[in-house]
């Protein structure tokens, strides 16, 4: 299981300045649990995923703790991290074509993912790869084993990527927009597959997406990110039924599906602030419909129903969460 404690990431940009892409995020992904991470573009979702994977851009600074099954990944050397990646944590990203080597048979790529981390024979790896391809729903996996990726459709390629990611039974899977590039009917298949596999294998998933529909369909818990911070988290049921943070509410309201009949959609005016110079106080204040005088200082993180959290002055009467940061 994955525990992220007060993680901060700063990325250097031109002019000696820094983007504070992730700013004090605390988040957990339990075994067999799917946690949806949502928020507008540029809120730091992928950067947080990169921080967990140990794949941050050059020069980036990370602070806080990333614990995987109780082990602090912060102190790992590059080589140790390489061994953790693909073994204990794995990544599925948006573009399956970019994740697969176009010149190698798909089966061989899955087998290689296994052999990279385990000392097993070619034959055995092949058998296990075929099994994995079958598990992710590739029809006739024995025959398709030696096909190059270009013989596969986008949805099939994403299945192969998932097979490779799950090859070594990782504790946690980071899925960064895994279905964004796919058609809806194919997306439904892949989401089902992920749901199914997590139940069967106990792998936890951090599902980065901008689609609240996807979260509602497959996630157990949701974390809403805004300008580098998680502003609200909780079970999907609680948060969708009664979003506490004005940003969560606005995101839910601006979904067209929520307003079948015509009429204007509620909008969130303005845009995500420039993270090289984030505003003081509540970062959402400039766009918040319920902004008030207290919002010029950062709101406290408080505990909500069902172990959820929210950071907004409207809820400061709720009990504060204990600082579990070292």
């Amino acid at each position: 299981m994955l525990q992220i404690n007060d993680v901060r990431v700063r990325i250097p940009v031109a002019g000696g300045r820094w983007v504070e892409a992730v700013d004090g995020v605390t988040l957990a992904v339990g075994s067999g649990e799917i946690v949806g991470l949502v928020g507008e573009s540029g809120c730091g979702k992928s950067t947080l995923g990169g921080a967990v994977m140990g794949l941050l851009p050059g020069g980036a600074q990370l602070s806080g703790q990333v614990l995987l099954d109780g082990r602090d990944l912060g102190g790992l050397t590059a080589e140790e991290y390489r061994r953790v990646r693909g073994n204990d944590i794995a990544l599925v990203s948006q573009d399956p074509s970019a994740s697969l080597d176009p010149t190698f048979a798909v089966g061989a790529q899955v087998a290689e993912a296994i052999r990279n981390h385990r000392d097993i024979g070619r034959r055995e790896a092949r058998e296990r790869a075929v099994e994995l391809l079958r598990a992710v729903g590739i029809p006739d996996p024995g025959a398709r084993y030696s096909d190059p990726p270009h013989r596969f459709s986008g949805g099939m390629k994403q299945r192969v990527v998932i097979a490779a990611a799950l090859a070594n039974d990782p504790s946690v899977l980071i899925a960064d927009e895994p279905t964004t590039a796919l058609d809806v009917t194919i997306q439904a298949q892949i989401l089902h597959l992920l749901r199914d596999l997590t139940v069967r294998t106990g792998t936890g998933v951090l599902m980065i997406t901008h689609d609240l529909g996807v979260v509602a369909q497959v996630c157990d818990r949701i974390a809403v990110m805004y300008a580098g911070q998680v502003v609200e988290q909780g079970t999907v049921r609680d948060v969708f039924a009664d979003p506490l943070h004005p940003y969560t509410r606005a995101l839910l309201d601006s979904q067209p599906a929520a307003h079948h009949r015509s009429g204007d959609l509620p909008v969130i005016l303005g845009q995500v602030p420039d993270l090289t110079d984030p505003p003081a106080g509540c970062r959402f204040a400039a766009r918040c419909a319920r902004v008030h005088d207290r919002c010029t200082t950062a709101p406290p993180v408080v505990e909500t129903r069902g172990g959820g959290r929210v950071a907004c002055w409207l809820h400061d009467a709720l009990p504060p969460v204990a600082q579990e940061v070292s």
């Binding site: 809806v184 997306q187 439904a188 529909g213 369909q217 497959v218 599906a257 929520a258």
Partner: peptide, 13 residues
């Protein structure tokens, strides 16, 4: 229509 993930946790596919 069925495949569209609707943002309602009670209507899981």
């Amino acid at each position: 229509l069925d495949a569209v993930p609707i943002p309602e946790p009670d209507a899981r596919l």
